[in-house]
């Protein structure tokens, strides 16, 4: 069975969880073993649903003994962040071995405008760290504006839907550092179409655990009509390469 690098996992209790799906580390390890997920980028529910940096610190604590789990921090505009200089932010990202950051503009109530996050995006662009954003949390026009101002940012589009190819394709065509995480992109023949148009280098496996079953995206990849070696890149190698390039 092919090994996977999961770019999109949440641990911790979320505010809304009617099916009681939340993952602690033990449950996460079980899921990773079940689906042969070798490595994962993980964020904490508290950083989304309670307080970004409280959750980030909790994340560090919970994953510290697991070298195959990498921290994804929720990040805030510098003006409302407890880490209020870029020197300090750089230091904190290094200390906590953070390998990706995540914006929640809607939930954390800020605009993805240049006046708000322009300096932060320049910083993130400079350290080549993957930035995960759901277009549904901000709007596609904001994504387009952001990329016009920060064309080299390593942007990972997450929580996509099957209706969004018309927004995604122009970005992949124009910006070489835009990637898509596949768990929500369930468009008919989506993987095949993406491969035909843009190659396989910018598709990433993500499960969106605990909300989705990893077997869903894995089956989609495994049954895609694309070369086996491209599946290896989508499953693992693209993600691993992105993480190795982070320059903190």
């Amino acid at each position: 069975m092919r090994g996977y690098f999961d770019f999109n996992i949440m641990i911790g209790k979320p505010t809304i969880d009617p099916l009681n799906n939340w993952l602690n580390i033990d449950r996460l390890k079980e899921e990773m073993s079940r689906f042969n997920i070798k490595k994962a980028l993980v964020y904490h529910s508290y950083s989304r649903d309670y307080d970004a940096y409280f959750g980030n610190e909790r994340l560090t604590e919970e994953i510290k003994n697991f070298p195959n789990l990498y921290a994804t921090w929720a990040i805030l505009p510098i003006d409302i962040s407890p880490i209020d200089t870029f020197d300090r932010l750089l230091e904190e990202l290094k200390i906590h071995n953070v390998k990706a950051v995540r914006f929640f503009p809607d939930l954390h109530n800020f605009l993805l405008e240049e006046e708000v996050v322009g300096d932060l995006l320049s910083f993130l662009e400079g350290v080549k760290i993957p930035v995960l954003i759901s277009p549904n949390s901000t709007g596609w026009k904001d994504i387009y504006n952001m990329l016009r101002n920060h064309p080299n940012i390593r942007l990972i589009l997450i929580d996509l839907t099957y209706r969004q190819s018309s927004y995604i394709f122009p970005l992949l065509k124009r910006y070489k550092n835009v990637y898509i995480e596949l768990s929500g992109y369930i468009t008919f023949l989506g993987i095949e179409t993406m491969y035909r148009k843009f190659g396989g280098e910018r598709m990433l496996f993500g499960s969106n655990l605990p909300y989705k079953n990893p077997g869903s995206t894995i089956f989609y990849i495994e049954k895609a009509d694309i070369p086996e070696e491209v599946k290896d890149y989508i499953a693992y190698k693209n993600a691993d390469r992105l993480i190795q390039k982070v320059d903190l």
Partner: peptide, 14 residues
């Protein structure tokens, strides 16, 4: 084909 069938199959099978 409104949605690709493969993710749903993987969901049930797993």
């Amino acid at each position: 084909p409104f949605i690709d069938p493969r993710p749903a199959i993987g969901w049930v099978e797993n």
